[in-house]
Computed example of a mutant assay.
Amino acid sequence: MRIRSLLALAAVGVSLAACSTVDRFDAAGDVHALLVAIRDNDRAGFDAHVDRQALKGQIEARLMDEARQRQPGDKWMAVAAVLAGPVADVAGEALIRPETFHAAANYYGYTPDRPLPGRVAIASALRPAGDGRVCAAKKDGPCMLIFTREGSTWRLTGFDPQAANLHLKR
C-alpha cells in the first residue's frame, strides 16, 4: 500500500514537472520573437508579444504603492492616487517600447554581434512563476521578464525594472 502511494506521488510529480517543461519550451518561441523584436527595434513584432494593459497596470500599481508609503493625511497621497492611472498611461506610452528593453535583450544574448540563442537555451532560462506564467532569469538570477499565455501566444505581462536595468535610450 505504501509503495503504491509513493508511486502515485512520483507520477504526479513527474506530470507536473513535464507540464512546466512544456510551458517553458512553448513560451521560448515567443520570448525569442520578443527579444529579436527588441534587438531590431521592430515595433510591430514587439507589440505582438507585449500586453500593454498588464504592463500599464503594473506601473499604476507601483505608483499607488509609492503613494501609500507617504505619511497618512499627506495631501500628495490623494493627488498621487488620483493621478496614478493617467500617469501610468503616459509612462506606459513612453516606456513600453523596444528601446527601453535593450538592456534586457542584451543580457539574454540578443546583440547584433552574437549568434542568437536557440529555443532550448531560451527555455532553460525560463522558470515557472506561478499561475501558468513563466519568467526569464539566468541561472539563480532574478526574474526580469514575466510572460503569460494569452490564447496561443506568450506575451510580456510584467517586468522588474531594477533587475532588468531598463532605461530610456538617449
Rank of each mutant, 00 (worst) to 15 (best):
Q71K: 13
A121Q: 11
G45M: 04
A54Q: 03
K75P: 13
R119D: 03
R70V: 09
D113L: 05
A44F: 03
I38F: 09
G118K: 03
A103S: 11
P98Y: 01
F46K: 08
G118Y: 07
A105M: 04
K75D: 13
A121T: 09
A129H: 08
A129I: 04
D74L: 00
A84E: 00
D74M: 06
D51W: 01
A121H: 05
L116G: 07
H102C: 04
K75V: 14
H49S: 02
P128Q: 06
A88D: 05
R114G: 06
Q58G: 08
V87G: 05
Y110Q: 01
R97A: 11
Q71S: 15
L126I: 06
A123T: 01
L116E: 09
P86V: 08
A129F: 02
V79Y: 03
V87R: 10
A88F: 07
L83S: 13
A94E: 12
L83W: 10
G57Y: 02
D42I: 07
N106W: 09
G109E: 07
F46I: 10
V79S: 06
R52C: 00
N41M: 10
D42K: 02
P117D: 12
D42T: 01
H49M: 02
V36S: 07
W76H: 12
Q71P: 11
A78Q: 11
T100H: 03
R127S: 02
P128I: 12
A104Q: 08
R43C: 08
E99P: 05
D89K: 15
I38R: 05
P115R: 09
E60K: 09
R119P: 06
G109R: 01
A78F: 04
R39V: 01
M64K: 12
V82N: 07
K56P: 05
V36P: 02
A94G: 08
A37K: 06
V120A: 14
V79T: 15
A88L: 03
R39F: 04
R70P: 07
